[in-house]
Computed example of a mutant assay.
Amino acid sequence: MDKGILLESGTNELEILEFQVGNNYYGINVAKINEILPYQKPTPVPNAHPSIEGIFMPRDTVISIIDLAKSLNLPDSTDKTTDKYIVTNFNKLNTGFHVHGVVGIHRVSWEEILKPDSTISSEGSGLATGIIKLDGKLIIILDFEKIVSDINPETGLKVSDIDQLGKRKRNESPILIAEDSHLLSKLILECLHKAGYTNVVTTNNGQEAWNKLNEYKASGTIETNVSCVITDIEMPQMDGHRLTKLVKSDDAFKGIPVVIFSSLINDDMRRKGELLGADAQLTKPEIGELVKEIDKLVLY
């Protein structure tokens, strides 16, 4: 797939692949996709999770196939001729998702993507991360990380890593977090508190974090209110790359360390983060490594 947009810096844009499951239309960030393949009957796996349809091996890698219809409680397709596998890579995992059809790719701004309210995506249970109107249709952007972690919790945030850090001293260095997932934001906050960082402010996206930074700037309290910024990449309104670019382009903020903590850290995205001036980039399960990076950036 053509992923040229990944090499652009801080545009606050992304490409969404629109696909179909049943009569419904959904979206996934193209940055997560390795390839799209025609459906082929997978090999069943004994005693697997009900949403695991089986495995297949397109080349030298065995890939698990998740039946999105089952994950979303939708009917299976009756005619497999248009069915596809969307093969993804995030959180260092290669996973295939069985969908009923691929519509096309749309280039959009994060500003156009709306955060679902609590009636659609309640804390910890919803599978929608955003909603966008395209070609007269409402497209739901799915939380693929949650779909995978619901099947295998070990792929989620490795909270147990904090215990391995041992006893920690209390640290009041102020940390600002931009994370749109309520559940992940809560887990990151709890992990940082457990690691000794007790002065933490959370925001729901890059725009809220940027607004908060400018509040500190206006009041002349930047140094006392933020010593490190931790940001996700995928967020409605403003993504983490755009936030990083704004921070590192402003003389008042450019000395503040920015850590990108995202499921999307691959070679292309890492290069992009480096170009934008990110001080560290970590994939989301590695919460213990996140704490170690904060230690380096804040304490030394």
Rank of each mutant, 00 (worst) to 15 (best):
Q281T: 10
P285Q: 02
T224Q: 12
E179I: 11
P285S: 04
L74F: 08
D83Q: 13
V226C: 11
V102I: 12
T231Q: 02
L187E: 12
A69I: 06
L187C: 00
I63C: 00
D251Y: 07
I256N: 04
I162A: 01
Q20N: 08
E215K: 06
T11Q: 13
E13T: 15
P174C: 10
P44K: 05
H182Q: 14
A280P: 08
H241N: 14
T283S: 10
N89D: 08
K133M: 14
L7Q: 14
K80E: 13
S227R: 13
D67E: 12
T11E: 14
S173C: 07
F56R: 03
K3H: 08
I177Y: 05
N199H: 10
I28T: 04
Q20S: 11
P46T: 05
D67L: 03
L74D: 02
S181N: 07
S77P: 11
I175Q: 05
N91D: 11
H49K: 12
V201R: 09
I33N: 00
I294W: 07
S118A: 15
N204L: 11
K92T: 12
L7D: 15
A128V: 15
I222L: 07
L74G: 04
K296F: 02
G22K: 02
D267N: 10
R242L: 11
S149V: 06
L68A: 04
T231S: 15
D279G: 08
S185C: 10
